[in-house]
């Protein structure tokens, strides 16, 4: 039932329009997005930043790439564990995009790290088996299927997204094969581990995040621009090169 609702939502979205392939920013919900952004910046300032700084050993992100003490190893392990549980869902998306090779490699990665990697806390697949993570999600699947990016959204807690990627997030939760393996509590632990590893990243790239979120003249516009450019680059949808001499 859940699945058919999600599928119907996706098909409705697919009927909307096809991808605009330029550097344009489509943000009709800007006032609402800006409120979510203000909330997210406050959350980062009050909670995420202090939390991630304490995880990195109390020194913030300005040590050399987060190579600090035992804390950072625990965070890396938790992140590996959480991310390994996400692999089957990624394999499904690779298949839906018509890419069997990364789907197979992702499945092997899951099996190697789930066994030799002690339930995923270690990552021998990358280190010894040449099976690095090949990231994907249902948002990308929709892009491959020709669904347009849709308006830009900034979600409370979750951060920048688009209509297409937000729909993708929902579908990813629904189609995840791990639902049939793990019970609800185990699944929640997996999601929690991923959240912790995100906070770990916040500590490692602290200077970059600070520069965008807390030092920009218009941090909303900077976040939106940087996120959209990066996402379009990932999906092969980036616009034309800028030629300032021709302007």
């Amino acid at each position: 039932m859940k699945r058919s609702i999600a599928l119907a939502a996706v098909l409705a979205l697919a009927a909307c329009q096809s991808a605009p392939r330029e550097q344009e920013i489509n943000d009709p919900l800007e006032p609402l997005n800006r409120r979510a952004h203000a909330f997210n910046v406050g959350l980062d300032q009050q909670v995420v930043k202090p939390l991630s700084a304490s995880m990195a050993g109390g020194k913030g992100g300005s040590s050399d790439g987060g190579q600090g003490g035992i804390g950072s190893h625990v965070v890396t392990g938790l992140g590996n564990f959480g991310s390994n549980l996400a692999q089957p869902g990624k394999a499904v998306n690779h298949l839906l995009q018509g890419r069997p090779e990364p789907a197979i490699k992702t499945t092997f990665r899951f099996l190697v790290n789930g066994t030799l990697g002690l339930a995923g806390f270690l990552d021998p697949a990358s280190a010894d088996f040449a099976l690095p993570e090949q990231d994907t999600d249902f948002g990308q699947t929709l892009a491959v299927w020709g669904v347009g990016e849709g308006p830009y959204l900034e979600l409370p807690l979750l951060g920048p997204s688009t209509l297409r990627d937000s729909a993708g997030r929902v579908v990813d939760l629904v189609i995840d094969p791990m639902h049939s393996v793990l019970n609800r509590d185990q699944y929640a632990i997996g999601l929690g581990a991923r959240a912790v590893s995100k906070a770990g990243e916040r500590a490692r790239f602290g200077d970059s995040v600070d520069s965008v979120l807390h030092e920009s003249a218009d941090s909303y516009a900077q976040t939106r621009l940087i996120w959209l450019q990066h996402r379009r680059h990932e999906l092969g949808e980036q616009g034309d090169e800028i030629d300032p001499y021709a302007e």
């Binding site: 218009d218 900077q222 940087i226 450019q229 990066h230 996402r231 090169e241 800028i242």
Partner: peptide, 25 residues
């Protein structure tokens, strides 16, 4: 060189947005 692009993120475009926000202020 007049532009550096890191993983799709364009320095020229991002400074354009930043300076225009500073100028608007």
């Amino acid at each position: 060189y007049f532009n550096i692009i890191i993983e799709g993120v364009n320095m020229l475009a991002s400074e354009r947005a930043e300076v225009s926000a500073m100028l608007a202020k």
